Amino acid sequence: MKVWDAMPRLEDVIRRNLENSSRGVILNIIVQPGSPTEGLVIEGNELVFQTVEPEGRGRENAALVRYLSKNLNIPVSKIDIVYGTRERYKRVLLMDINEERLITLLSRILAWPGEGR
């Protein structure tokens, strides 16, 4: 699939996984620990963060926050896991960013399964 052909679908998947709140934008993400690589991919209509960290002890949460901070240029202090700290399904609050800017940034870093990052 060519990048320009995938853009409307990509934005649709991102929008399905976003929610505005009074404190910022909430991003719904599934975390997949123990992956061979680290990054954010689309699987079906879900955003999935694949991390090399093993499951347990919160390392996958720290990896997710670090990844989002680095790739979205948001300070770690402005990222908060508001639901799912002990589950694979997470709701992550991103403060001081608007929905459209977040969609643009996520579109740049997301990969479809099987694509390189």
Rank of each mutant, 00 (worst) to 15 (best):
Val52Ile: 14
Pro113Thr: 07
Ser107Val: 07
Leu47Gly: 00
Val82Gln: 06
Ile29Cys: 05
Ile97Asn: 01
Leu93Ile: 03
Val82Gly: 04
Val41Leu: 12
Arg88Gln: 08
Leu27Cys: 02
Glu87Thr: 10
Glu46His: 12
Val25Cys: 04
Lys2Cys: 13
Thr104Pro: 00
Glu55His: 08
Gln50Phe: 11
Phe49Asn: 00
Gly84Phe: 01
Asn28Val: 10
Ile97Cys: 01
Ala111Glu: 05
Ala111Leu: 15
Asp5Ser: 14
Val31Cys: 04
Arg86Lys: 12
Val3Glu: 10
Met1Phe: 15
Gly114His: 09
Asp80Met: 02
Ile109Ser: 04
Thr85Gln: 06
Lys2Pro: 10
Glu55Ser: 12
Leu106His: 07
Ile81Trp: 01
Arg16Asp: 13
Lys2Met: 13
Ser21Trp: 07
Ile109Glu: 04
Gly56Thr: 11
Leu10Gly: 03
Trp112Ser: 08
Val82Thr: 03
Asp96Phe: 06
Ser35Val: 10
Ser77Gly: 14
Gly56Ala: 13
Ile30Arg: 07
Gly116Asp: 11
Glu43Pro: 09
Gly56Glu: 09
Leu105Glu: 09
Pro113Cys: 10
Arg88Asn: 14
Pro75Leu: 03
Ser77Val: 10
Gly84Thr: 06
Glu87Ser: 13
Asn71Ala: 04
Glu46Gly: 12
Val31Arg: 01
Arg88Thr: 12
Asn45Thr: 15
Arg86Pro: 00
Tyr67Ala: 06
Tyr83Asn: 07
Gly24His: 00
Ser77Cys: 08
Asn17Phe: 04
Glu55Gln: 10
Glu87Gln: 04
Leu68Thr: 05
Ala62Asn: 03
Met95Asn: 01
Pro54His: 06
Ser22Pro: 02
Glu60Arg: 03
Leu93Val: 00
Ser107Trp: 03
Gly56Gln: 07
Gly56Cys: 13
